[in-house]
Design a protein around this nucleic acid. Structure first.
Length: 262
DNA sequence: AAATCCTTCAACCGCGCCAAC
DNA sequence: TGTTGGCGCGGTTGAAGGATT
């Protein structure tokens, strides 16, 4: 038994949207706002499936969309975010105001993929195609969605397993703690930043946990650095000249809308 | 000029997640 | 606790237009 269809297929239009349909959809959303996509088509007098309306609005009709070519900066940002997040187009789009996940996905598949391949870079792993496999690498980064009522509470679990081969070509588990971070995506939070700025004002060096936006974590080693020294379990890092650990410009905090752990 | 191939991107589809019941 | 319905996501498709033969 399959799931019930999202709409009456027999009585819905498919394919390219007409100007009149666009105008109806825009007028309805201006008057009533977004949401309730299932009932919207009928209310707006559209012979369309609710999903189709939502897609049309989000990807094409929304007034805050930035049309036109991607800039160099946007392209670099997409590449960096993709190297970290993989095909999480909606998360990537969240970092690019005015761009949609669909737009970024298309741009990736038509332009960036090809560009990376021509540079000898595997677009999936972001590593050199000819690179030998004997160096340290992250073998898996797995994601587990846990979305809540809004994007502030979207979380991703990143589990990274580091392995490296030794001189005898035997694969060894890297002697690192199993990095199994449950990260939460939330908008930049000025208050948090202020608190953290205060927290770190004595030093430009912050620990890995704090760079991920984890406040007052028991694993925070900043205090230890400044006080009792850094724990061996903590990967400490310096934020240099306002760039985070993947080279994105930052105000001193990692800011994928800011990542924080639960 | 016509036919064919290639590229782009809007739109569709299926599925997973989650809140409500 | 299980079921259902709605939303959102990522992968895929196909029409349209451009480039090449």
């Amino acid at each position: 038994m399959g799931r019930s269809p999202c709409c009456e297929k027999a009585h819905t239009n498919k394919g390219a949207w007409t100007k009149e349909e666009d105008e109806r959809l825009i007028a309805y959303i201006r008057a009533h706002g977004e949401g309730c996509w299932r009932s919207l088509p009928k209310a707006a007098g559209l012979l369309r499936c609710g999903k189709s309306c939502r897609l049309r609005w989000i990807n094409y009709l929304r007034p805050d969309l930035k049309r036109g070519n991607f800039t160099e900066e946007e392209e670099e940002l997409i590449i960096k975010l993709h190297s970290l997040l993989g095909n999480k187009w909606s998360l990537i789009a969240g970092r690019l105001p005015g761009r949609t996940d669909n737009e970024i996905k298309n741009y990736w598949n038509t332009h960036i993929r090809r560009k990376l391949l021509s540079r000898g870079i595997d677009p999936t792993t972001h590593r050199s195609i000819n690179e030998p496999t004997s160096t340290q690498k992250v073998t898996t980064i797995s994601f587990a969605g846990d979305s809540k009522d809004d994007y502030q509470d979207q979380k991703i679990n990143i589990k990274a397993e580091f392995v490296e081969t030794n001189k005898e070509d035997k694969i060894q588990e890297k002697c690192l703690p199993d990095l199994n971070l449950e990260l939460r995506i939330s908008p930049p939070h000025h208050q948090q930043n202020q608190q953290l700025d205060h927290h770190h004002q004595r030093s430009n060096s912050i620990c890995f946990t704090c760079s991920l936006g984890i406040q007052n974590s028991k694993d925070c080693s900043c205090g230890k650095i400044n006080g009792n020294g850094c724990s061996n379990n903590i990967v400490s890092m310096n934020i240099i000249a306002g760039y985070d650990f993947i080279g994105l410009k930052t105000n001193g905090l990692l800011d994928y809308r800011t990542l924080e752990t639960k």
